[in-house]
Design a protein around this nucleic acid. Sequence first.
DNA 1: CAGCTGACAGATTTCAATATCTGTCAGCTG
DNA 2: CAGCTGACAGATATTGAAATCTGTCAGCTG
Lengths: 195, 195
Amino acid sequence: MPPTSETLTAERILETTEEVLRRHGPAKATVVDVARALGVSHGSVYRHFRTKAALREAVTKRWLDRTSEALAGIVAEDRDPEARLRDWLRGLFDAKRRKAGDDPELFATYMVLTGESNEAVPEHIDDLTAQLTRIIEAGVAAGTFASDDPQSTARAVFHATGRFHDPCYAPEWAQPEAEADFAALVELVVLGLRA
Amino acid sequence: MPPTSETLTAERILETTEEVLRRHGPAKATVVDVARALGVSHGSVYRHFRTKAALREAVTKRWLDRTSEALAGIVAEDRDPEARLRDWLRGLFDAKRRKAGDDPELFATYMVLTGESNEAVPEHIDDLTAQLTRIIEAGVAAGTFASDDPQSTARAVFHATGRFHDPCYAPEWAQPEAEADFAALVELVVLGLRA
DNA sequence: CAGCTGACAGATTTCAATATCTGTCAGCTG
DNA sequence: CAGCTGACAGATATTGAAATCTGTCAGCTG
């Protein structure tokens, strides 16, 4: 829990809200709980976030952004685009699977939060498809990928691999055939992209 | 509603259960309701179905099988495998989208039912991937598709197109970009299959 | 006076009493 | 006597009263 004597900042509220969500779950985590954990009145929390929904959405955005940032490194590298695409898809799958497997309750909590939020998820998907677009553009430039519209192709690749990053499939990720299915799907997608 | 004077048969119970589910929804449709609609005591329903869950699962299976049967025709045709694959994927997408769009409440009801059932959905998926496998095998035989393991490739195609047949994406099917996204995804998949 | 508090109204959630449902079975009926 | 009925026990769902929460704001405090 963060120290209670510093000035109250949006950042500290977000950290504490994450903590309260982890402890109480999405259904029982109240603004009053967050305020109590921070040692302030709940009115002070409303000074930084207009509504409870806005607070939850901000927490959700932070959580999603952590995944995007981890993958941004692969996009920025200067390597064979096909290898980067494979690593990027693998990185996304592993990150999601790890989150879902390591702490299923927390993952379920964020599933509820993303379901509530209208902005956070589309923004996250835009982030990710923008990254994919850059990799595919690099592949087209290098002559290894064929695409007359990298943005649309990136969407197609993102949709095609949904089974291995969309949270609604999280239960399947633990099954033994998941690895082979992932490999087969990536192979199909990469073949479809080749010039 | 079916006539009440005929002998009580599993088939009549299933029809009436569908009717009751359509009218009352999954949460409020009880075995007593079904028995009342049939003009019998609920004990008689339990003579044909051991539990309420078994009754619901049987209704779910019937519903899913109707989709499989509609697509089986395309598999059996004697045409260019690539064209059949395109038609099959289009047929699956259209069938699901129509079900979801025409009667959203009934679709939501069946989403609940499939969520309850442990057998029906995997069986349905096995049905569909078996159909896909036959089309891909035909393509390999004809030399238009490349695959060293049509069954695994069929799974990959099924997974790749999940966004356009998996009910968890039903809300997206009504959006204007769905058509273009579907076309782009089918193109990617077909390119990935070409010999 | 910028930032925090705490009382407040209306909305939401909890909880326990009450009603309904599931699944069984002894016995009725045609 | 094959098939159906309806009463029953335990499980589940509904209901409404009480408790809690959300969001506001007038006023306190450093």
